[in-house]
Simulated assay, not measured.
Amino acid sequence: MSANALYTDLSGYYDLMCVDIDYQAQSHCIRRLHQLFGNKGNTHLDLACGTGPHVRHFIDYGYQSSGLDINQPMLDIAATRCPEAQFTLQNMSDFNITSQVDLITCFLYSIHYSDGIEKLKDCIASVHSALSDQGMFCFNVVDKDKINNDLFVRHSAQHDGSHFTFHSGWHYCGHGEKQSLKLSIEKSTADETHRWHDEHPMVAVTIKQLKEILKPYFEVHVFEHDYEKIIPWDNNSGNALFACVKI
């Protein structure tokens, strides 16, 4: 399968695959960070927005929200979920918008979809250009040096008479700027079982390295990866939440 085959061909299952994600808690946390550190504006862009669940929450909070993604089937679902929003088919490493916004988000570790460090730098530069004065960029990351290749997340769900089992996990070979996200779906009905496997190439970076990349563009705040509490990063955790204010 191609690098995006699972997301493109099985986009109808994406929300089912992410059923355990608390989109409201994530959106509310970023809204709080924006109120604390941002410019108090209400325009928002979600990078790698997928089917638009985060955009839906930001609209409900009173934001003028929009999204972009590289998969049109995802955007079609997002447009149905959020008819008030504008969605565009763009790559987050090199995107353009007509007017600057006050808040840009990138949830679910999607910042790692940048293909290598240079593309990650391109994404950060594009975000900086797209933000208004004192605008804020929020996203979450995993530190390449903290990845446990044996650790997988698994959950199951019932849908339309079928039983689904989803697996996902990070893999890093221990050197270089490439890591991967391994995904699989198993769909079982009374008569047969189908399985899909995919491996998405992603950029590998440490949290400290990323802070240095961001410094020329932003005032950088790093927090523990906890959407219930706003706690400064302990300089040791393998996951972190970034809130970056444009300078």
Rank of each mutant, 00 (worst) to 15 (best):
Y61P: 04
G12W: 10
T206G: 13
E192D: 13
F137C: 04
I104D: 04
A243F: 00
F58M: 11
A25V: 05
W170G: 01
T80Y: 08
D20L: 10
Y13G: 02
Q134C: 02
A5C: 09
S126P: 03
G50D: 12
T51V: 02
Q209S: 14
E186S: 06
N42W: 06
H112G: 08
H28L: 13
Y109N: 12
L151Y: 13
D76H: 09
N140M: 02
W196P: 02
L47S: 05
I21R: 11
I30L: 08
V203I: 11
N148R: 11
L6V: 05
N4S: 07
C123T: 10
S168R: 14
I30K: 03
Q26N: 09
K121F: 04
G41K: 06
C244Q: 02
K182H: 08
Q134F: 00
C244H: 10
E118V: 00
S99N: 14
K215V: 13
T51M: 03
Y13T: 06
M1S: 13
I104A: 09
D198Q: 14
T88I: 11
Q24W: 14
F37Q: 09
K208D: 15
S65D: 03
E192T: 12
Q35M: 12
H34T: 05
D15K: 08
L151C: 01
Q35P: 01
H175W: 11
E219I: 13
K178T: 15
Y172L: 02
H44V: 01
P83W: 07
A3Q: 06
H57P: 01
V55A: 03
E186Q: 07
R154Y: 01
Q35N: 08
Q64G: 04
L183P: 08
L131E: 06
L183G: 03
M92Y: 05
E212C: 11
C82S: 04
I124F: 15
I247P: 00
Q24V: 15
M74C: 10
S129L: 10
D234C: 01
L214M: 01
S132T: 11
T43V: 09
D69Y: 03
I185E: 03
V222F: 12
Y113P: 08
G41N: 01
P201F: 06
I230E: 07
S99D: 12
P83S: 12
F218Y: 15
E192F: 12
D143R: 03
T80H: 13
Q64P: 00
K208Q: 11
F87V: 12
C18Y: 14
H225Q: 02
M1G: 15
L241G: 05
K40Y: 07
D102R: 05
L214E: 10
T8E: 13
Y13A: 01
L183K: 09
Q209T: 11
Q100P: 02
F223R: 04
G12D: 10
S132L: 02
F37W: 15
L16I: 14
F218L: 06
